[in-house]
Simulated scan of single mutants.
Amino acid sequence: MTGLPTELNGAASGVFITLEGGDGSGKSTQAALLAGWLGEQGRTVMRTREPGGTEVGVEIREIVLHHRGHIAPRAEALLYAADRAHHIETAVRPALARGEVVIQDRYIDSSVAYQGAGRVLGGAEVRQLSLWATEGLLPDLTVLLDLDESVARGRLEAAQKRFDRLEAEKGDFHARVREAFLALAAAEPERFLVVDAALPVEELAAVIRARVATLLG
């Protein structure tokens, strides 16, 4: 299934932009820069994330990222889908219906990459689960910040960040995640913008802005 304009996905005139990539690739930084630029253009922007974009999502985020014990991979996938179903219904679709630009850190592609490939559950089944949870809503544009997993790990370590459950996984897990993201982008080139996350922050932001400007017309 390819990306469709939001009005064909059951929303109205808004624009849905997601940022994807491995941990440490700079998604939050680029989301903030893009939101600021769009605000300067007079656009109303909702910036959000998964998991954790709603009050319910904050509680789910605490479980999936910080639970100290084992979580079965299928249970993990279902928790992400539950967060996504609530988030899309209560936050994203209303914003799109108001004509806003939604900038979201992680969405369905993250589940396909992390649970489908990283946890080896199978990308097709995980994707179908999320499509059911969201009633088929796909982004108008997905920006994939691609970065070698060892470089990304170095960034996280340099930041002296406490690793969550997924960040703490071994290198082969993150290598599978990266490969899955790139495969998704290759399968849907009209929806994805793949950028080299090793580029300077402002250079990356300029590339993303150019594509978003084209999208917005």
Rank of each mutant, 00 (worst) to 15 (best):
G36I: 14
T48V: 07
S130L: 13
L65V: 10
T134W: 04
A198L: 10
K161E: 14
H86V: 15
G26I: 09
H66Y: 10
G118W: 04
G118Y: 00
E40C: 04
A152I: 08
R127D: 12
A35C: 06
R49P: 09
V120A: 14
L141E: 08
G154C: 06
I71L: 13
A75F: 07
I63L: 15
A95H: 00
L166M: 15
P73Q: 03
I103F: 03
T48E: 06
E62G: 12
A82F: 01
D83Y: 00
M46D: 14
G136I: 09
F16D: 06
R43H: 15
E62N: 11
G171S: 15
I17D: 06
A183W: 00
R162H: 14
G39Y: 01
A117W: 03
M1K: 09
E40D: 13
A95D: 03
E40T: 11
L137C: 08
V126R: 03
E62Y: 04
R178D: 05
P51K: 03
T18A: 07
L215N: 07
L216K: 01
V126C: 04
E125D: 14
I108C: 03
E179T: 08
G217I: 12
L182K: 02
L8S: 13
A35S: 12
A213G: 10
I60K: 02
G14I: 11
R162M: 13
L137M: 11
S110I: 07
G154S: 09
L144Q: 01
L138N: 08
G14D: 10
G3F: 12
V58C: 15
V126K: 00
F16N: 00
G69R: 07
A82N: 06
I71Q: 07
G26H: 00
G10I: 09
S111G: 06
L138W: 06
V58Y: 10
A158P: 05
E135W: 13
A95C: 07
L78I: 15
G42N: 05
S111M: 05
I108W: 04
H86R: 13
M1C: 14
L137S: 06
I208T: 02
A82C: 08
V112C: 01
G22A: 09
D140P: 05
V126Y: 02
L4I: 14
F16M: 04
L147E: 01
N9E: 13
I63H: 08
L129Q: 02
A91W: 04
G22S: 14
G21P: 03
K161S: 14
V212A: 00
L138A: 10
T142H: 01
K170P: 12
S150M: 11
A175G: 05
W132R: 07
G154F: 06
P189Q: 10
W132I: 15
A91Q: 10
K27C: 06
V143F: 05
R93M: 13
A159I: 11
R47I: 15
R93E: 11
S150D: 15
E203H: 11
R61M: 14
G136T: 08
Y80N: 05
Q160F: 14
G10W: 07
R84A: 11
L166R: 05
H70V: 14
